[in-house]
Computed example of a mutant assay.
Amino acid sequence: MSEFAEVLEALRRVRGINSFFALDVGRPDESWLPGTALLDGPALKTTIDTIATRYRADEPRVAASLFFLGYTARLLSPLTAADLPVDVRPENLWWRHDPVNGLSVRIDQPRLGPPAAEALAPVVEAVQGVAPVASGLLWGNAMSNIAGALKMIVRAGLLTAEEAELRGARLMSAPPFELAGEFFSLPGEIAFRRRSCCLYYRVAAGGKCGDCPLVK
């Protein structure tokens, strides 16, 4: 099987879990921006400002965290389920954000790429250039989305809880994920507790997430 076909088949196989696992492929219409617009120009700051307004987040770092939480959810959910290093570097992405539908992403070419951490690193740096948010918090957001994806994969019957925990441990075995948190077992379920907080509790009507370290 060619790389092109392998990636398409892997993404097709997992897209039915829920909408976060549906990663579309191909060049979209003109309403979308290239992924490189995340790294250069005003689009990222404009998007984070829009998120701040929508969620009534007074601190720029809170809106920046919410942006990265949504960005990584839409990329890492399908990659975690497919267990394949699909190329999600900015140069192989398209994205858009609107106040009603939020953030959408898609890949341009169905091909393999570097590990997810390497693909996400330039966006982490770009987000930190817009708002004073800690890198550990952003990587914690990414790992939290991996853990959440694994939980959905177990519920969909594609992995057992034990298999999902092993996959999660493997994904956490290298920087920058190795300090993000820890997995622990519940009967028939996979659970995760992160070491950083995404700050969602600091938005109007926000609260603490299930994997938040602030929950006692």
Rank of each mutant, 00 (worst) to 15 (best):
D40S: 15
D58E: 11
G41D: 03
L103Q: 14
L120Q: 10
I51M: 05
R106V: 07
D87C: 09
L103G: 11
Y71E: 07
G70K: 11
K45I: 08
V100N: 04
A43F: 11
E118N: 05
R106P: 01
D83G: 09
P34A: 05
S65P: 15
V100C: 01
E59A: 14
A37D: 08
P114T: 15
P110R: 12
L38K: 15
R61W: 08
G113C: 12
R61M: 04
S104A: 09
R54V: 05
V88F: 04
P115W: 01
R106Y: 03
L38M: 15
V105M: 11
R61G: 04
H97D: 00
D87M: 03
A43T: 14
G35H: 09
D98K: 03
L69V: 13
P115M: 04
L79R: 06
A73K: 12
P90D: 01
L38H: 14
A117S: 14
L76K: 06
T47K: 09
I107E: 06
W94Y: 14
P34G: 12
D58W: 01
P115E: 02
L38Q: 15
V127S: 10
G102M: 12
E59L: 13
I107M: 10
R54H: 04
S65R: 13
K45Q: 07
S104M: 01
V86L: 08
D83A: 14
R111P: 05
L76Q: 10
L120D: 04
K45H: 04
W94C: 07
L79N: 01
P122T: 02
L38F: 11
A117I: 05
D108G: 03
N101I: 02
V127W: 15
